[in-house]
Amino acid sequence: MTDPYKVLGISPDASDEEVKKAYREMAKKYHPDNYVDNPLADLAQEKMKEVNEAYDTITKARKGGGGRTGSGYSSGYSSGYSSGGSSYQGSYQSAGKYAEIRNAINAGNLQYAEQLLDQAPARDAEWNFLMGSLYYKKGWLDDARSFFQRAASMDPYNQEYRQALNMVSAANSPYRQTGYGPPAQGGFDMCDMCTAMMCANMMCGGCR
């Protein structure tokens, strides 16, 4: 197995705080929100697993030495990951054909999905949304945005369509919240929760 400290990019004599900080940064970087509909999502997931394992190994090894650790933290992130992957389950109740197309897009079988979409009889909101997803995965972002816009205007109350549109808009993207940009204001997301848990955990161990 690779050196867990190397995975987190820190030296073995880093303090517990530094380990936590490095872990939090890595976990943010590879968070599934940053890889929605991304053809590299599987690589990011692998990386996330590696980071989680490295953090667990370090905290376990340090527990013997008396260092306080926040083990609830890693579980928070790993559960975040599995829920992130299922963003498409929302409207599985729609026609079976569309479900098949969704599966094809999720599996990266873009040619097949494109073929099915070409044959689809109706050009409704869902069709536009799926076309947008297809183009997004191909990296054709201008066309993707046009389709997402059309889907969102045909069905303005659909949460999924609006989220997709936000994803390709510069102003309000998930990257802003979890990536390198300034943190989101006033929201309560997974990171806040983890931070809160971490703080609580530190208070518990205050009398060590």
Partner: peptide, 14 residues
């Protein structure tokens, strides 16, 4: 701008 910035974000993710 939006299409270019989206590409820049995907480039950063990769």
């Amino acid at each position: 701008l939006e299409t270019l910035m989206s590409s820049a974000r995907l480039a950063a993710a990769a």
